[in-house]
């Protein structure tokens, strides 16, 4: 039965007429009873439709920015191809889009000429999902590093802080797209939605190429995008990858403009990151 359920619907949202080398009607009749109102095919079709409406709606809600980049029709073609190739492997619909970036890299035709922009948006929107409910480590306090010399001091970046180097300023586009939609994922529900409500909206202007460095992070249980200077980004990334504080700063500032007062900048960055709760200690 799952083989049938995972088979995409026709363009008219009906069940396919054939399943592998057999007529679908025959397949349905082999295990589903008809009644006096619905054939076996029609009964199975209810489940086939429910499956696809549910997972497509899930992806549709989670990636409003990608929809803005690709347009509704192209997005739906991508979503269907992606879900046909990668059915959900998690109990939670939250993880539906976990392999969308790798799928799009492998199947660039689904993004057309906007591949780079689409990939940046997928990465940003997936990071947003991760930031929303990833774990929070116990906050780092001054006691945690009082006895550690700076050259040996390591800090853990919170799992709800995700770092992205992007070729397009998709953060603003994502905010605009999400404002036009209903926000983060709603409840998982076992009830059946009566119908999908996808409307046609005026297109949001797409950004021009520009390299940006973004931290997608959670603060007071809200998800934010914070743009970082390249040097600041390099420091946080090095810390995330396990470098000591001194090594991270040295690496990030190796080729930096010596005319700038980096010491005060770095102090200010660390102070800001600490206030945002970006650093934690191992449990």
């Amino acid at each position: 039965m799952t083989g049938v359920l995972f088979t995409p619907l026709t363009a008219g949202n009906d069940m396919q007429r054939r399943f592998r080398d057999r007529p679908m009607r025959q397949v349905a009749e082999s295990f589903i009873k008809p009644n006096d109102r619905l054939t076996s095919f029609e009964r199975l079709e209810l489940y086939n439709r429910q499956y696809w409406f549910r997972v497509l709606d899930g992806l549709y809600e989670d990636f409003p920015g990608l929809r803005a980049v690709l347009g509704e029709a192209r997005f739906m073609r991508l979503a269907e191809a992606y879900l046909a190739k990668h059915p959900s492997v998690s109990f939670s619909m939250r993880n539906l889009g976990s392999r969308l970036e790798s799928f799009l890299r492998a199947q660039p035709k689904y993004a057309g000429r906007r591949l780079a922009l689409a990939l940046d948006m997928v990465r940003l929107e997936w990071a947003q999902i991760e930031a929303f409910d990833n774990a929070a480590l116990p906050a780092l306090s001054s006691d945690d590093f009082l006895d550690t010399p700076p050259v040996r001091l390591r800090v853990m970046l919170q799992p709800h802080v995700l770092l992205l180097e992007l070729g397009y300023p998709v953060d603003n586009l994502a905010i605009a797209a999400r404002q036009e939609n209903s926000g983060m994922r709603g409840e998982a529900s076992n009830a059946v939605e009566e119908s999908s409500s996808r409307g046609t909206r005026p297109a949001i202007p797409l950004p021009k190429r520009e390299r940006i460095f973004v931290a997608v992070h959670r603060h007071d249980n809200m998800v934010y995008f914070k743009r970082l200077d390249p040097e600041a980004f390099a420091i946080v990334r090095a810390l995330r990858d396990g470098a000591t504080v001194v090594a991270a700063c040295e690496k990030a500032l190796r080729r930096a403009d010596s005319a700038i007062d980096w010491a005060s900048r770095v102090r200010s960055w660390f102070s800001n990151w600490a206030q945002l709760g970006w650093f934690g200690r191992r449990k």
Partner: peptide, 15 residues
């Protein structure tokens, strides 16, 4: 509660 909505590692749902 729907258990699955709260089988997460952190964030607003658990708070």
């Amino acid at each position: 509660i729907i258990s699955e909505n709260f089988m997460v590692d952190g964030g607003r749902p658990l708070e």
